[in-house]
Design a protein around this nucleic acid. Sequence first.
DNA 1: CTTCATGGTTTCCAAAGGGTACCAATAGCA
DNA 2: TGCTATTGGTACCCTTTGGAAACCATGAAG
Lengths: 117, 117
Amino acid sequence: MKHGDAFDPNCPTRLVLDRIGDKWTVLVVLTLSDGNPRRFTELRKMINGVTPKVLTQTLRAMARDGLLTRQVFAEVPPRVEYRLTPLGLTLQTPIKAITDWAEANVDEVMAARAAAL
Amino acid sequence: MKHGDAFDPNCPTRLVLDRIGDKWTVLVVLTLSDGNPRRFTELRKMINGVTPKVLTQTLRAMARDGLLTRQVFAEVPPRVEYRLTPLGLTLQTPIKAITDWAEANVDEVMAARAAAL
DNA sequence: CTTCATGGTTTCCAAAGGGTACCAATAGCA
DNA sequence: TGCTATTGGTACCCTTTGGAAACCATGAAG
């Protein structure tokens, strides 16, 4: 249905778009893209600027959508490991396309933005 | 990047990411990706669910970043045509990667989401 | 019995998103 | 002379989301 593509608010494609279009989701995928598990605090440190509340929301939403797993260890202090699922790992492809574009064109965009003042 | 990639909030790449990660920006690009100009009302109708305020914000921001042009005709009733710049057209590549992923994996995501209830 | 680390939660506030109403300008009509 | 219709937005208001800061439960270690 290339028609309307994602133009219908209820189109499932658009629902998916909303999730992977999220800034923090992209950064979480980048952080976990080597396939290794990371703990909550690790993620928080690596993704500079994210607050714990928003990180929790993002991780829970991604887990709900099958993009990552959340493994809780019954230890003290608590240990929780997040890792991408095979599905989550496939997100690397489109995300790389985005970051490649951003890196290639950031100068032009910033120049346009500066000129618009 | 590879280090830091977009992990620094002030990293220009992340600024660009914020813009093209926006839901409405993606839909505007899809709407204009055939290279033809569209009027404000046309865009509003094609992108189901967007309010005029948000559409205006999106279009102005994209124009500021050099992704599209806004051509005003001195007519009554007013006519304003939006069209992608060459830079804006190059956005099709990463966006297609995203929509392809979404279409390919929407079933799996929705299944995971349903199972999580 | 105090301290420390972890993985959050709670509270509060500001910013963004979104719905609805409205407007300016003029051509065409009556 | 009104009256209407069209277009591309604004203005206003309310709800939702994002974010900063503080707090919390647990139990092992000191």
